[in-house]
Simulated assay, not measured.
Amino acid sequence: MRRTYRRPVQPGRNRKIVIGLAVAALVGGGIAVGTGLSSASTVCDGMDDAIGRNQEFIAAQRASPNAQTEAVVANRQAVIDLINVQRKQAGCGGAVAAPPAAAPPVAAPPAAAPAKPVQQATTAPPAAGGGNAAAGDVVCAGSTVTVSGEGGAPAASSGTFPLGTTLRVRNLDNNKSITVKVASTSGSCVLLNNAAFEEVREPGKFLIRRAVIERVG
């Protein structure tokens, strides 16, 4: 009868294999956790930026109030509350600190009458940020674009252009663009509402760092 020889198992070799598998599992888990934390940080940073812009706009409205201040501030506060709910759901820690309240404007003393009449300028200077730009001009160069948190059909808000202005916003990172009308006031060149931002953003990001903004009407 033929005998089968079995090689004895070496305990030390088995121990090395088990340890190697455990180390590989730990390294793989670390990479997955690190990637998740990086993505969450990007989402939280975008929402924090949106809250900060709305808080700055509210502070500016409080510093120079008008007949519509309370309604506009209430709208912006509702936007901040909505984004805070989204921050909580995303697991973002801490809270975005509100900017310090701006001091009320101090009335300037009356100017002395000039000795000679001063010739008035016939044309007003262009508004900062391209408010007087013609159709087709690129405006607000270098501006980032984020979400305002407002609902409804795709639209924009702006502190540079009047209501009804048509703007085209293009995300250079994915070459997606959208054309929207300015429907409300904000403290930025342009903010996109939820529906408009979904059309051009990259997945998981709440901030467009490389954007081209054009006035088309």
Score class of each variant (00 low, 15 high):
residue 176 K to W: 13
residue 186 S to A: 14
residue 64 S to H: 05
residue 192 L to H: 01
residue 66 N to C: 06
residue 66 N to R: 00
residue 168 R to C: 03
residue 10 Q to G: 03
residue 50 A to W: 08
residue 41 S to I: 04
residue 5 Y to I: 10
residue 209 R to F: 02
residue 46 G to E: 09
residue 209 R to N: 12
residue 85 V to K: 10
residue 107 A to Y: 06
residue 19 I to E: 06
residue 137 D to L: 03
residue 53 R to G: 15
residue 90 A to C: 01
residue 117 P to A: 14
residue 78 A to C: 05
residue 106 V to A: 13
residue 214 E to M: 03
residue 201 R to I: 06
residue 39 S to A: 09
residue 49 D to H: 04
residue 189 C to A: 15
residue 47 M to C: 06
residue 116 K to F: 08
residue 18 V to D: 09
residue 196 A to R: 12
residue 125 P to C: 09
residue 5 Y to P: 00
residue 30 G to P: 00
residue 31 I to M: 14
residue 189 C to D: 12
residue 95 A to Q: 08
residue 111 A to C: 04
residue 169 V to S: 13
residue 36 G to A: 13
residue 141 A to F: 05
residue 28 G to A: 12
residue 215 R to I: 13
residue 80 I to F: 00
residue 149 G to Q: 02
residue 153 A to R: 05
residue 132 N to Q: 15
residue 211 A to W: 02
residue 154 P to F: 11
residue 177 S to V: 04
residue 73 V to M: 07
residue 72 V to W: 07
residue 126 P to D: 05
residue 102 A to C: 00
residue 33 V to C: 04
residue 81 D to P: 00
residue 4 T to H: 11
residue 24 A to D: 01
residue 20 G to M: 05
residue 108 A to V: 14
residue 173 D to C: 02
residue 136 G to V: 06
residue 123 T to Y: 09
residue 74 A to P: 04
residue 136 G to F: 04
residue 47 M to F: 10
residue 107 A to G: 12
residue 149 G to S: 12
residue 186 S to C: 06
residue 128 A to F: 02
residue 128 A to M: 01
residue 89 Q to I: 07
residue 92 C to A: 09
residue 190 V to D: 11
residue 9 V to A: 09
residue 138 V to P: 00
residue 90 A to G: 04
residue 22 A to I: 09
residue 13 R to Y: 13
residue 121 A to M: 06
residue 136 G to A: 02
residue 199 E to N: 05
residue 122 T to I: 10
residue 45 D to A: 15
residue 10 Q to T: 07
residue 125 P to I: 12
residue 3 R to H: 11
residue 163 L to H: 03
residue 57 F to H: 13
residue 53 R to F: 11
residue 196 A to M: 09
residue 96 V to Q: 13
residue 186 S to F: 08
residue 169 V to E: 07
residue 82 L to I: 00
residue 199 E to L: 11
residue 156 A to Y: 11
residue 29 G to S: 15
residue 49 D to C: 01
residue 86 Q to F: 07
residue 77 Q to E: 14
residue 175 N to G: 04
residue 93 G to K: 11
residue 153 A to K: 06
residue 135 A to S: 15
residue 164 G to W: 05
residue 173 D to K: 02
residue 46 G to R: 07
residue 105 P to G: 15
residue 157 S to E: 15
residue 202 E to I: 08
residue 127 A to Q: 12
residue 138 V to K: 01
residue 136 G to R: 03
residue 166 T to F: 08
residue 17 I to C: 02
residue 85 V to R: 10
residue 203 P to K: 08
residue 189 C to I: 06
residue 174 N to D: 11
residue 129 G to V: 07
residue 69 T to F: 07
residue 189 C to Y: 08
residue 161 F to S: 05
residue 118 V to W: 01
residue 200 V to N: 05
residue 44 C to P: 07
residue 116 K to Y: 04
residue 1 M to V: 09
residue 45 D to S: 11
residue 65 P to D: 14
residue 26 L to S: 01
residue 68 Q to W: 02
residue 38 S to A: 15
residue 144 T to L: 12
residue 54 N to M: 14
residue 104 P to A: 15
residue 13 R to L: 15
residue 211 A to E: 08
residue 87 R to H: 03
residue 194 N to A: 13
